[in-house]
Simulated scan of single mutants.
Amino acid sequence: MTVRVVASSLRTCFGTGDQTFEALLRGENGVGPLRHGSADRLGVERGYHILDDGPSRAGRWLAGCAADAFARSRADPVRERVIAIVGTGLGELAAVEDWALGGAVPDPEHLHYGGVLRAVLPGVTDVITLTGACSAGGHALALAQDLLELGEADVVLACAVDGMTRSMLAMIGRVAAEPTSRVRPFDADRTGVLLGEGAAAVALTRTERPGPALASVLATGLSCDARHETAPDVAGIAEAMRDALSRAARVASEVDVVVAHGTGTALNDPVESAALREVLLEPGGSPLVTAVKGAVGHLSGTAALVNVDVAIRCLRDGVVPAVTGLETVLPEGDGIRFVLGGPVEAAPRLVQTEAFGFGGANAVSLLEAA
């Protein structure tokens, strides 16, 4: 069953969803000097930061997005059952790291976000926190649709949040030969990962609920290939793409735009390009392809929902932003219609969004205009 998006709220290094999309259309790059930990010790010098310091930062961003989406959804918890689902990769790990270094003891309720969301969502029935690395927000979206289809809820907030942690920064610093200066998705000269920070909340309802909507979510395809701890797999990603098309009863040629995962890494970009070619191009599709990590960085659990927010705006505004940081398309991307140089006017009817996490946890969603 198709479900409707009635509100979407986003926070990135650029600010709100409106500010983020405007920055994407201008081709801006939100990277700046690293604000967390020691650049020398971590091997990371830059990041895509939300300029907000202090304890439980991620929880504050999440609460702000959830409260905004809840208000604009016009949900009535007296008459409607409202459930919130949070996808995250790292949760409040930064707060735990601060505590380990002598800081304040974090509130246990903030570690799984139950208390955080109940404080800003009066009458919410349940708060569920799940993980899935970079596809966590996509899994939250899929579960939200399931709950609505099964009649378990009237309004579901699919949320996601992640901030930078020293441990994740240390990990990416160890896999790069030298510090990365910016993320360059699908570029032949890409040099790897830089972290970003972000939060998102999407309010979903069944189609029969009255009132305006931003877009419709037709389906989310999921797969967990578990082929490798970190390396992506063409077959696993392709399976998620095909699952989404099958659940939505659509064919490859109907996909007009893809908001790709686009990590700017040695392994993911060729694999994602191969999956796009296999599932969409070879059966006759020719979508425009964009990606946002060159502008906002790797948002971990928020990655899927920032792509959903961008997809909604592409459908609404009839324009697709270019891939920030992409100058020379990698050889494996030959023939794919990446948006280069500046935004492209379009009238998309069906947009595919992609998010692929560690361990082969993949989520692909299909959205159309409401």
Results as ranks from 00 to 15, higher is better:
residue 57 R to K: 13
residue 20 T to E: 04
residue 274 A to V: 11
residue 226 A to L: 06
residue 274 A to L: 13
residue 218 L to W: 00
residue 15 G to D: 10
residue 46 R to W: 03
residue 336 I to F: 06
residue 128 I to V: 14
residue 269 D to L: 14
residue 126 D to R: 14
residue 141 L to P: 02
residue 298 H to S: 09
residue 67 A to Y: 06
residue 216 S to G: 09
residue 94 A to Y: 11
residue 352 Q to P: 12
residue 3 V to F: 03
residue 349 R to I: 07
residue 106 P to D: 07
residue 28 E to M: 08
residue 144 A to V: 03
residue 2 T to F: 05
residue 252 A to K: 01
residue 318 G to D: 00
residue 180 T to Y: 14
residue 206 R to E: 13
residue 172 I to F: 13
residue 240 A to Y: 08
residue 92 E to P: 01
residue 109 E to P: 11
residue 362 N to A: 02
residue 299 L to F: 14
residue 361 A to R: 10
residue 270 P to E: 08
residue 67 A to D: 09
residue 336 I to P: 04
residue 335 G to R: 06
residue 161 V to Q: 04
residue 310 V to L: 06
residue 197 E to W: 02
residue 177 A to I: 09
residue 105 V to Y: 15
residue 30 G to H: 03
residue 130 L to A: 09
residue 287 P to D: 10
residue 145 Q to A: 15
residue 221 G to V: 02
residue 261 H to E: 02
residue 64 G to H: 10
residue 173 G to Q: 12
residue 185 P to R: 03
residue 46 R to V: 00
residue 132 G to H: 03
residue 88 T to C: 10
residue 269 D to W: 10
residue 292 V to M: 01
residue 32 G to P: 08
residue 322 A to S: 05
residue 44 V to I: 07
residue 253 S to Y: 01
residue 188 A to R: 09
residue 285 G to K: 14
residue 148 L to K: 04
residue 336 I to T: 00
residue 52 D to F: 04
residue 296 V to E: 06
residue 253 S to M: 04
residue 305 L to E: 05
residue 22 E to T: 10
residue 158 A to K: 11
residue 219 A to K: 00
residue 44 V to W: 01
residue 293 K to T: 07
residue 85 I to G: 02
residue 100 A to V: 10
residue 192 G to C: 14
residue 1 M to F: 12
residue 245 L to K: 00
residue 132 G to Q: 09
residue 274 A to N: 09
residue 283 P to M: 03
residue 348 P to V: 09
residue 220 T to R: 02
residue 92 E to L: 10
residue 90 L to Y: 08
residue 221 G to F: 01
residue 271 V to C: 12
residue 279 V to H: 07
residue 294 G to P: 07
residue 90 L to T: 14
residue 69 A to D: 04
residue 301 G to L: 03
residue 13 C to E: 09
residue 4 R to D: 12
residue 251 V to H: 13
residue 180 T to G: 15
residue 347 A to N: 12
residue 204 L to I: 13
residue 184 R to T: 01
residue 106 P to I: 03
residue 166 R to V: 10
residue 146 D to L: 13
residue 159 C to W: 01
residue 166 R to G: 12
residue 107 D to T: 15
residue 50 I to T: 06
residue 366 L to G: 00
residue 54 G to T: 13
residue 319 V to W: 04
residue 91 G to P: 06
residue 332 E to R: 07
residue 51 L to F: 15
residue 42 L to S: 06
residue 357 G to P: 03
residue 101 L to P: 12
residue 278 E to Q: 15
residue 238 A to G: 12
residue 314 C to N: 05
residue 153 A to N: 05
residue 189 D to H: 15
residue 278 E to T: 13
residue 146 D to I: 15
residue 312 I to W: 01
residue 50 I to G: 09
residue 338 F to C: 11
residue 228 H to V: 02
residue 125 T to S: 15
residue 168 M to P: 10
residue 121 L to D: 15
residue 230 T to M: 13
residue 323 V to R: 00
residue 317 D to M: 11
residue 276 L to R: 13
residue 98 D to P: 03
residue 205 T to R: 06
residue 308 V to Q: 00
residue 58 A to K: 08
residue 185 P to K: 07
residue 97 E to T: 15
residue 216 S to R: 05
residue 186 F to G: 01
residue 17 G to D: 04
residue 240 A to V: 04
residue 203 A to W: 00
residue 245 L to A: 01
residue 147 L to R: 02
residue 202 V to H: 05
residue 221 G to S: 00
residue 151 G to L: 03
residue 355 A to M: 08
residue 157 L to N: 05
residue 141 L to Y: 05
